[in-house]
Simulated scan of single mutants.
Amino acid sequence: MQPTLDPATLKNLIFDLGDVIIPIDLTAPIRNFAMLANMPEDDVRDLWQQHDFLNHYETGLIDDDAFRNHVRQLISQYSDAPKGWADEVIDTAWNTVLLDLPVERIERIKQLRTRYRLFLLSNTSPIHIRQVNQVLTGMGQPALEELFETVFYSYDLRMAKPSPGIYQHVLTQAGIRAEETAFFDDNALNIRAAAELGIQAVQVQPPLTMLDYVKDLS
């Protein structure tokens, strides 16, 4: 059951990025790497699951170059496709997870920041953040770091949702109280972990979007 948000008690809003602000397709990178490697999608998906370097990348344990090299080495072991993909080829395939960004969501965030302190908390990678910011600025919109008071990225913090520590870090770093804070995320585990700390955690679930969940906030 979703909590009922009371604007009178709220001072702070924390947003997830993927499937809250920007729609994503988690299967798209697998499809694209499979096409590039001339391999079945299921085989690429199995390799990704067996070699869990993505978690290392999103928690800052490896950098962009190490991530790209992991992709090259992994595919080269199991594919007869041309080796040595350029950085741009890997980045482009990796960024296909990001779908079109609805400008109305950005405009709503800009409205909300006149009334609330706004923060971003995302399990993500530097390649994705650079791409989102490129899309935003190409639309004439502020970059994420300008749109929010503070952005919290898993790769910077070296921890990820749903670890309780990441939520506590945000509360402490921002100097905000859990009970005065709403958190919007699409993942049920992330929502549960935030709620256990007293945050008003709201799961964004299709067919509803972020806009539906914040429509009653002035």
Rank of each mutant, 00 (worst) to 15 (best):
residue 3 P to C: 06
residue 5 L to Y: 04
residue 7 P to R: 12
residue 9 T to A: 15
residue 14 I to L: 08
residue 15 F to N: 01
residue 15 F to M: 02
residue 16 D to A: 08
residue 16 D to G: 06
residue 18 G to K: 08
residue 22 I to R: 08
residue 23 P to T: 07
residue 24 I to Q: 05
residue 30 I to S: 05
residue 31 R to N: 13
residue 31 R to L: 12
residue 33 F to S: 08
residue 35 M to T: 13
residue 36 L to V: 06
residue 37 A to E: 00
residue 40 P to M: 08
residue 41 E to C: 10
residue 42 D to W: 00
residue 45 R to C: 02
residue 46 D to W: 07
residue 48 W to N: 13
residue 49 Q to E: 13
residue 50 Q to D: 10
residue 51 H to Q: 14
residue 54 L to A: 03
residue 55 N to Y: 07
residue 55 N to S: 08
residue 56 H to F: 04
residue 60 G to R: 09
residue 60 G to S: 12
residue 60 G to L: 11
residue 61 L to I: 12
residue 61 L to H: 14
residue 61 L to W: 07
residue 63 D to C: 05
residue 64 D to I: 15
residue 64 D to C: 09
residue 71 V to R: 02
residue 72 R to H: 11
residue 72 R to I: 13
residue 73 Q to H: 10
residue 73 Q to F: 08
residue 74 L to Q: 14
residue 74 L to A: 08
residue 77 Q to N: 15
residue 82 P to L: 11
residue 83 K to L: 09
residue 84 G to D: 14
residue 85 W to P: 03
residue 85 W to T: 05
residue 85 W to S: 06
residue 89 V to S: 10
residue 93 A to D: 02
residue 98 L to C: 10
residue 101 L to K: 10
residue 102 P to Y: 13
residue 106 I to C: 09
residue 107 E to V: 14
residue 108 R to V: 09
residue 109 I to F: 02
residue 110 K to D: 12
residue 111 Q to G: 00
residue 113 R to S: 14
residue 115 R to M: 15
residue 117 R to T: 12
residue 118 L to P: 01
residue 118 L to A: 03
residue 119 F to K: 04
residue 120 L to W: 03
residue 122 S to T: 13
residue 122 S to G: 13
residue 122 S to P: 10
residue 124 T to N: 11
residue 124 T to Y: 09
residue 125 S to H: 12
residue 127 I to Y: 03
residue 127 I to C: 09
residue 131 Q to R: 15
residue 131 Q to K: 15
residue 132 V to M: 08
residue 133 N to D: 14
residue 138 G to S: 04
residue 139 M to R: 08
residue 140 G to R: 08
residue 141 Q to M: 15
residue 142 P to F: 00
residue 147 L to Q: 02
residue 149 E to Q: 12
residue 150 T to I: 10
residue 150 T to N: 04
residue 150 T to M: 02
residue 151 V to D: 00
residue 153 Y to Q: 01
residue 158 R to M: 11
residue 161 K to F: 02
residue 161 K to L: 03
residue 162 P to Y: 12
residue 162 P to T: 11
residue 163 S to D: 15
residue 166 I to D: 04
residue 166 I to R: 03
residue 168 Q to K: 13
residue 169 H to K: 06
residue 170 V to L: 15
residue 170 V to M: 07
residue 172 T to M: 01
residue 176 I to N: 03
residue 176 I to E: 02
residue 176 I to P: 04
residue 177 R to W: 00
residue 178 A to E: 06
residue 178 A to I: 04
residue 179 E to W: 03
residue 179 E to I: 02
residue 180 E to P: 03
residue 181 T to Q: 03
residue 184 F to W: 04
residue 185 D to I: 07
residue 188 A to H: 12
residue 189 L to T: 08
residue 189 L to A: 15
residue 190 N to Y: 11
residue 193 A to D: 05
residue 196 E to C: 04
residue 199 I to N: 07
residue 199 I to L: 10
residue 199 I to K: 07
residue 200 Q to K: 12
residue 204 V to M: 04
residue 204 V to W: 04
residue 204 V to I: 13
residue 205 Q to Y: 00
residue 206 P to L: 05
residue 216 D to I: 10
residue 216 D to Y: 14
residue 217 L to M: 13
residue 218 S to N: 14
